[in-house]
Amino acid sequence: MNNPKKLIVSHAPFWHIGSAVPERNFNIIIAALPAALMGLAAFGIPALAVLSLSVASAVGWEWGVNALAKRKNTVGDGHAVLIGLLFGMLLPAAAPWWLVVTGTFTAVVIGKLIFGGIGANPFNPAVLAYAILSVAWKTFFDFDAQLIHYSLDFTPFYPLTAAKAFGTRAVAGIPLTELFFGWQIGGIGAGCGLALILGGIYLIARGFVRWEIPLSFIAGLFITAALFHMAAPEVYAGPMFHLLTGFSLIAAFFLAPEDSSSPVNTTPMLIYGTLGGVMTMLIRNMGQYPEGVIFAVLLINLINPLVDKIRPKAIGKVA
């Protein structure tokens, strides 16, 4: 039975749907790009510098640490690019270079690689990095203080801080359309609601993100904000305002549904998303920070393994 032809022998199944990890990551990057570009339009060249440095340094850290640890080089899967891009999109346009580089180190190395690389991170790396850095360097994450030297042709203050400090009246003058098209102070890529929603719809339609998490996140946030608003309209701004400011939409479509830190079963996804939205509003309205998304996302990342235990019974199991 000797045959010169070498045939490929592998295990069933012999078909594959054709999806792959790099494809998945690059599609999420494509979906995030419109929002990033809108950020560039709003904040100009400094934003471009922050984004480029963020992506480049994230890739650099991943490559460097993999080389140092003598592991397989995983830069090619695009995950480092994605982390760098998302992290850059959260930063203010005036972020100094060292903040960006430290941030991507925190995200890629501490957020992902030390847990074992892609798929093993318990937290969304970009959000973890943002949380650590914003605790350590508060002033650099104060959007008002950072962008004070910029002349912008739209409302020149961070809506959430204003709403928190001075109540609804301070932000009543900001038209919602301005927020929707991204003419607001905030993270580079987090401002433009339109672009984020388009990106999110693209991801959902192509099956890279399930609808449960984004929609339940938005619903949780919207309903909680509406309840607060109804209770005290003078103190707490309305639900649309909260939906379109800060990191709400980028979290709903890009941060909360991150693969390895979010649940996979339907009911857990709904719980996870809703809890994220509710926590965001609780922190914004009752907590110390004007923006609650970052810690809300970390919190729901923490409960992810727990809620994901709610799963349908396997066939043939009675208990």
């Binding site: 592998s10 693969d259 979010s262 066939i315």
Partner: peptide, 30 residues
Amino acid sequence: AQDASRITATSDYPCINCGECIRVCPANIA
């Protein structure tokens, strides 16, 4: 018979927890 160009190689890439398998599994296995 399967042509070499149609063969998708399996890999030792880690699970990224995307959940596709969960949704397709007829036996509801995690």
